[in-house]
Simulated scan of single mutants.
Amino acid sequence: MSLQRRTFLRTVTAGAGAVAFAGALWQHAAYAAPAAQSPYGPLLPADAHGIALPAGFTSRVVARSLRAVGGIIWHSAPDGGACFRDGDGWIYVSNSELPLIGGVSAIRFRADGSIDRARRILSGTNLNCAGGATPWNTWLSCEEIFRGRVFETDPYGEKSAVAHRAMGRFKHEAAACDPDHRVVYLTEDESDGCLYRYVPETWGDLSRGRLDVLCATSGDGVEWRPVPNPSAPLVQTRHQVRAARHFDGGEGCHYADGVCYFTAKGDRKVWAYDTADQTVTAVYNGDGTLDGVDNITGTTAGDLYVAEDGGNMEINIITPDGVVAPVLRVEGQDRSEITGPAFAPDGTRLYFSSQRGTSGETSGSGGITYEVTGPFRH
């Protein structure tokens, strides 16, 4: 286990100070920072776009739902997203959490941050919520419906999207690739949802493989057991293995340095599955500034960024030394949620969306996609 990972998993913030826990004690602790301040300082009054940011950060609107951007009409209900390198520029992909037409759109940015063009890379799917990027530069887009599918899409628009049914037919939320163990973790947005692990026969080819479900053993210990029939039409995957461990409303998922971090909105927790110790513990237990835990991403500096579905419409940072604090707040959009946080390849730009924007319409027709630029730690 790396020093950074061990420090992250064994540190909690209590009030304004960080306290290190060892042995069994830390396993029952979680981050709680009601008075913490982010490493970027306090949030200033909201800017012209309604975004409250620390000093030195700026925001801009990249796209609005049902309006033209880069040669296409930007989709409604923008949700999960990720960034990919593309020559001297980069691409931001965004899901559409709409029924029946869903899909994914992608915007390419030039080296100076200006928009080059945009394209649709998936259409005609259903409630595409979150997903995850792969090490081979594809985007896994997940359907959040009964017997939903995982679609592998091409951000560069050169290959057709493919549905990987071997990854299970359930209410998919997010995916996170673990290149160290050559597996893909999958969350499930059900009140008794599970955490899954997909083990492809060949790393880099997700068409064939085995779906496992996380099961409880003793204490915080866990193990993986195969799901007998990942595509069963009647018995849902989460009910096929009696020992499966359940989480209330699985949401975002992010892998880094031997740990799979995932969120559960009903639990109001950020969980951490430690691949070395084979344990699951909470690194945030819902009693700090972060509320409505949802999409999650991270940086090479070891920081986690967690978006809120509701709450104060904030993105909070969780640092390796245990600080939990807001790094931005979207004001005047209380009936929306923050979705799709993702950093550009150089780490200086953060993209995200307000799914329903200022209108709060459930159709997501008022969705807004933003970019925040500043001295992020990376």
Rank of each mutant, 00 (worst) to 15 (best):
S2V: 00
R5V: 08
R5D: 02
R5E: 08
T11G: 06
T13G: 11
T13P: 00
G15R: 10
A16F: 13
G17R: 15
A20C: 01
F21E: 05
A22K: 07
A24S: 13
L25H: 09
W26N: 04
A30R: 09
A30Y: 13
A32S: 13
A36F: 06
S38D: 02
S38G: 08
Y40D: 00
L43M: 01
P45H: 00
A46M: 06
G50H: 10
L53A: 02
G56F: 06
F57I: 02
F57G: 00
S59W: 05
L66I: 04
V69D: 05
G70C: 04
F84A: 07
R85H: 10
G87A: 10
D88M: 06
W90R: 10
N95S: 11
I101T: 14
G103I: 10
V104Q: 13
A106Q: 14
A106E: 13
A106G: 12
D116T: 09
A118K: 15
R119C: 04
R120D: 14
S123W: 11
G124C: 13
T125K: 15
C129K: 14
C129Y: 10
A130T: 11
W136D: 03
T138H: 15
L140Y: 10
C142P: 13
I145T: 14
F146C: 05
P155M: 14
E158R: 15
K159G: 05
S160M: 11
V162R: 15
A166D: 12
A166C: 11
R169L: 14
A175G: 08
C177L: 01
H181M: 02
R182F: 03
V184Q: 05
Y185E: 01
S191R: 15
C194W: 05
R197E: 00
Y198R: 07
W203E: 01
W203F: 08
G204S: 01
L206G: 00
R208T: 06
R208H: 11
C215E: 01
T217R: 15
T217G: 00
T217S: 07
G221S: 09
V227Q: 01
P228A: 05
V235A: 06
V235R: 09
G249L: 06
G250I: 13
G252K: 12
Y255R: 05
G258H: 02
C260E: 07
F262W: 10
T263E: 08
T263F: 03
G266V: 13
D267F: 07
W271V: 07
Y273R: 10
Y273W: 12
V280N: 03
V280Q: 09
A282V: 12
N285G: 15
L290C: 11
G292T: 13
D294R: 14
T300E: 14
A301G: 15
G302E: 08
D303V: 11
D303S: 13
L304Y: 08
V306G: 07
A307K: 11
G310H: 10
G311K: 08
M313P: 00
I315A: 02
N316Y: 03
I318C: 03
I318S: 01
T319H: 05
T319V: 07
A325E: 05
R329G: 03
V330Q: 04
Q333G: 03
I338Q: 01
T339V: 06
G340E: 07
P345A: 03
G347M: 09
F352E: 00
S359Q: 14
T362L: 12
S363Y: 09
S363P: 12
S365G: 12
